Computed example of a mutant assay.
Amino acid sequence: MSEVLEPYRDHISAFWSLEDIDQTKADHRDLLNLYALDQILRFAIDRHTIETLFDNAWDCTPCRFGHLQSFCGGLATVFANTTSVESDFSILKWEMDENHTCLMHLSLEGVFQAKQ
């Protein structure tokens, strides 16, 4: 996540404190480590599908990773301009589907990095 957030750190810091950003990155790192080590949590996360509601997905980690949950919730409520998203997918030579129509550039950064 740090690779994804770093190019946007200045922009994010206009809305979040540097401590909040660092805690979000720490939450992400800790969640990845816990996922690798805790078979029960891994099973619970892997059970989720695209049909799983946002709050229901986070229920498997109650009262943990609050900064990460808030950050992801913020991403889920930001809608990019359809034209810019279509352009990004065109560059990637991927087709748009209903699951990608509301992505913003920060979300696409992860897609771009995965593509590399």
Rank of each mutant, 00 (worst) to 15 (best):
L103P: 00
F112V: 07
F15L: 14
H105T: 12
T52V: 01
K25D: 09
D38M: 03
S17H: 06
E86N: 10
V111P: 00
I12Y: 03
N56A: 08
Q39T: 13
F65I: 02
L103V: 06
W58D: 00
K115H: 12
T24Y: 01
Q23T: 12
S17T: 14
T49Y: 00
L32N: 05
L92P: 03
E3F: 13
N33S: 11
L5H: 03
W94Q: 15
Q69K: 14
Q23D: 09
F71I: 01
F89D: 01
F79S: 14
I50Y: 10
V111Y: 04
S2W: 12
R64K: 12
T24Q: 01
A14K: 14
D20E: 15
V4D: 02
E51T: 03
E109V: 07
E95S: 15
F43N: 15
P7R: 05
E51S: 05
I45R: 00
G74Y: 08
H105D: 13
L32C: 10
G74T: 09
I21M: 07
S70G: 12
H105S: 15
R29I: 15
R9E: 06
K115R: 14
S17Y: 09
A14G: 14
L5V: 08
D88S: 09
P7K: 04
V111L: 09
T83L: 12
D55K: 04
S70T: 12
G74M: 08
Y35K: 03
K93V: 06
C63I: 09
D55Q: 07
L53P: 08
A57L: 06
S90K: 15
G74P: 05
L5N: 02
Q23M: 11
L32S: 04
W58Y: 04
Q39M: 10
I40L: 11
N99T: 12
L75E: 07
V85Q: 01
G73M: 05
E98K: 15
S13N: 12
I21P: 00
H11N: 13
G110N: 06
L5W: 02
A36V: 09
Q116G: 12
R42F: 01
H11T: 13
D20F: 08
S70A: 15
D22T: 06
D38Y: 04
K93I: 07
H105W: 09
A36N: 13
V111R: 05
M96E: 03
A80G: 15
N81C: 14
L32M: 09
D38W: 04
S70K: 14
I91M: 10
A26P: 03
D59N: 07
S13M: 08
T77Q: 14
S107C: 13
L31C: 02
L31Q: 01
D97C: 06
T24V: 07
S84K: 09
L68T: 00
D20C: 08
I40S: 13
D55E: 10
A80L: 11
H48A: 07
I45T: 01
Q113P: 01
F54E: 01
Q69F: 05
L41V: 05
M104P: 05
D88T: 04
M96T: 07
L31F: 06
L18V: 12
C72P: 00
